[in-house]
Design a protein around this nucleic acid. Sequence first.
DNA 1: GTTCGAGGTTCGTCAAGTGAACTCAGCCGG
DNA 2: CCGGCTGAGTTCACTTGACGAACCTCGAAC
Lengths: 142, 142
Amino acid sequence: MAGTLAVVGEKWSLLVLREAFLGVRRFADLQRNLGAPKAVLTDRLGTLVEQGILRRVPYQAEGERQRHEYRLTTKGIDLYPTLVALMQWGDKYLADDVAPLALEHRDCGSPVHLGLVCDDGHELSGAREVRAVPRQGASRAG
Amino acid sequence: MAGTLAVVGEKWSLLVLREAFLGVRRFADLQRNLGAPKAVLTDRLGTLVEQGILRRVPYQAEGERQRHEYRLTTKGIDLYPTLVALMQWGDKYLADDVAPLALEHRDCGSPVHLGLVCDDGHELSGAREVRAVPRQGASRAG
DNA sequence: GTTCGAGGTTCGTCAAGTGAACTCAGCCGG
DNA sequence: CCGGCTGAGTTCACTTGACGAACCTCGAAC
């Protein structure tokens, strides 16, 4: 866990990824949506690319010179549950009125949420139903 | 989401919460386990208490004066999925050898993981099976 | 060959993080 | 009653990082 935070724990990283999941790929759009200083955004995008979470892909809009856009890699897409977890908590405890974004299953249309499930197929109600078991062979990092 | 990050997005907050979930409650133990400067730890604990994520509970060890310990509130416990999400991603992409901590269902003993499930009971394979639908009535905050 | 705009870089300022040293409150042993 | 010990902070000097504004650069269009 500490490792993950070292990678994406900086101030704007997860917000950049949120935009990425919403389909925002261009520097200027990210900058406008987030309101982050350009210098910080440049730096964050750089480290996310370094970490293999985003890819820098060339593209060319009509009548413009070639530029680069930022796309999620598989490694980046796998951070989706993290973002959803943050979102759900915010929706529950911080939302003024109603969640501003709903997630639904693309196939069946019903609402999607994040849950703890065990390999027997039970869905757990929360942290109290989980036992954490330390393992040997590594100090705790997660 | 931005709101959630404003609350727990600072450098040590989520690590403090990890320790809390592992049962660490005392200032000195937190400080030792995390290696965070005392000043920062004091500040983080203070804001987490302010936010209602931790409670300051008096306790008294034998032969010592009364002190305070920090315990998770319900609001804090509900951050569990966030931590698990960070942990699972770290286990997948950053672990040197093997995950240092395994989670199991307290009732049936089988491994627990975090998954996206829809209200029809399907478990989704990942972000690509989800569609995000904006709602009216609020600007996006999540 | 000047303008325009995306995608940066540079710079001065200011907030936040960091570690070491210091404080404070009580319990204890002498 | 005195002085030392310990857990929990606080203060301080220093370094790192965030911030906003201004500047630079490349290529297309005029």
